[in-house]
């Protein structure tokens, strides 16, 4: 929950000020007066506290729900909280491939958007994960197979292998998978969209 304390001359302006400072929509901010100060009997000064009174996870759920309604898709959304810092949404619709997109691009963007919305309403950074129809689980298995296969090849031929560009999450899966291998090492090269993984043979 986000909070902000400040002093202001007029209560009418408190909401605008809080909205400006917290960078959040006015209608979810609650203003409480803590103290009323009078200076010289004329000028008034209020000490107030602004509270963002919503649950970020619920906001994320609502945003997703509303989005699918607008798209006229029937969607089941399951929300899970692993701990205070991690929220995951698993989605199932009649049009899963459409929402996943090529190489998971649409899903990645959807997750980025929801993560952004959810974190607007939280004072600490939350991890927000979105999955559609178990795509990420399948993808993980695929990547681990790819990693093992390529690593075996590298260990045998002792020639390094370059994998196609992947996002951070996908690269991490491969790094982790190959971290305990004795014959190969992994490194990411290139910048931005071009960032990819290279599997190198280790010197004996």
């Amino acid at each position: 929950m986000r909070k902000l304390q400040f002093e202001i001359k007029s209560l009418d302006k408190a909401l605008d000020y809080a909205s400006q400072e917290l960078r959040i929509n006015k209608n979810v901010i609650e203003i409480n007066v803590i103290e009323k100060k009078s200076l010289l009997g004329l000028k008034k000064l209020y000490k107030v506290e602004a509270i963002v009174n919503v649950d970020p996870a619920e906001i994320g759920y609502k945003t997703l729900k509303e989005m699918f309604d607008n798209m006229q898709l029937d969607a089941q959304i399951e929300m899970k909280r692993r701990n205070d810092k991690e929220i995951s949404y698993s989605i199932n619709t009649t049009e899963n491939p459409l929402l996943i997109g090529k190489n998971g691009k649409t899903l990645e963007n959807l997750q980025f958007y929801i993560r952004n919305i959810v974190n607007l309403y939280s004072d600490e950074h939350l991890i927000v994960l979105v999955d559609i129809g178990g795509y990420k689980e399948n993808r993980k298995k695929q990547l681990e197979i790819l990693a093992t296969k390529t690593a075996k090849e590298v260990a045998r031929t002792r020639i390094e292998a370059k994998l196609y560009p992947m996002n951070a999450y996908e690269r991490r899966i491969i790094h982790t998978k190959l971290s305990d291998w004795r014959d190969v090492s992994t490194i990411s090269e290139g910048e931005g969209q071009e960032r990819h993984l290279v599997i190198k043979p280790k010197r004996r």
Binding site: L98, G101, T106, N109, L110
Partner: peptide, 24 residues
């Protein structure tokens, strides 16, 4: 700035979501 986001990532996300919906 907020709607566009850093490196246009939020704008891009909005475009991709709309694009997916339209491609149906």
């Amino acid at each position: 700035g907020r709607v566009i986001g850093k490196n246009g990532r939020i704008a891009n996300a909005i475009r991709t979501i709309a694009y997916a919906s339209a491609s149906r």
